[in-house]
């Protein structure tokens, strides 16, 4: 498809480091091809800034194909921008109009402190996984993979939950900065599989405990997380997490 080109105004959050209070800066970019990805547009801006002797905008990105979960950015009030089911790296400039002003902010959450500009620290997610998001099976302990048939529906539902890329869009878009969708995806993935059963109760208790300690907010079931999730992880998982947690509390 033949693209056209855009001139845009960018309002970008600039913050030198975690201690700095930060502020918005405004930049203009021109001749942006609609075939570019959003991050390629930022590349163009950065090249412009470096050539002018200014500091480029720091932002997280790596695979640029929508799977590593590293890219973030709150674009015009939306996590990963206006397209549903899409990460920022897969958002293309076709989504914007010529002359538009685009406001770009980092993920905002107490549990995701800003490191620099648009880069935030999401290690809270790693700590939640370390608290229980695994099956305790040492290397070499496994039986034959086909020894335990798993109903296709369960395997598919588990996969749908496991598709989470840990980008944090759920936290960023939730009005309460709640991490429930992230936690529920991992809890669901393992609760749906026979391999996850032995540690089912401890897993949910420990992961929720860690989630609370990290300072995320509480879920009020607004559904923004599901709407903004680039992998379209379902709210069903949150209901399942609630169920698992209630059940675990009654049992332990």
């Amino acid at each position: 498809m033949e693209g056209s080109s855009l001139n845009l105004t960018l309002k970008i959050w600039r913050q030198k480091n975690a201690q700095d209070s930060g502020k918005f800066a405004t930049y203009n970019v021109s001749d942006i091809s609609t075939d570019m990805s959003f991050l390629e547009m930022i590349d163009v801006l950065n090249e412009q800034l470096i050539t002018k002797g200014e500091e480029p905008v720091a932002f997280d990105h790596d695979c640029r194909e929508g799977i590593c979960g590293m890219c973030s950015m709150y674009i015009n009030g939306r996590a990963h921008g206006p397209w549903n089911g899409t990460t920022t790296c897969q958002l293309h400039m076709r989504a914007f109009k010529n002359g538009e002003t685009i406001t770009i902010e980092p993920w905002r959450a107490g549990a995701f402190p800003v490191i620099k500009d648009l880069v935030v620290n999401r290690s809270a997610f790693d700590r939640i996984i370390a608290a229980g998001g695994f099956v305790s099976v040492n290397t070499g302990n496994a039986q034959d993979a086909n020894a335990l048939p798993i109903p296709k529906d369960d395997a598919d539902a588990s996969f749908a939950a496991a598709a989470c890329i840990g980008c944090g869009a759920c936290v960023a878009s939730c009005k309460n900065s709640s991490a429930m969708l992230f936690v529920s995806a991992k809890v669901s993935q393992l609760a749906l599989l026979p391999q996850g059963q032995p540690e089912r109760i401890d897993r949910v208790l420990n992961m929720v405990k860690q989630m609370d300690e990290e300072g995320f907010g509480n879920c009020t079931n607004t559904g923004s997380c599901e709407a903004e999730c680039p992998k379209e992880i379902s709210l069903d998982n949150i209901a399942r997490l609630n169920r698992e947690y209630l059940f675990a509390t009654l049992k332990k």
Partner: peptide
């Protein structure tokens, strides 16, 4: 708690597009 979980608010927030007013 929920308010404290986001000490710095967004300048532009599009939650109205992703969740209902009631919620």
């Amino acid at each position: 708690n929920n308010s404290d979980a986001r000490p710095v608010k967004y300048a532009v927030n599009g939650v109205s597009k992703t969740s209902s007013w009631f919620s």
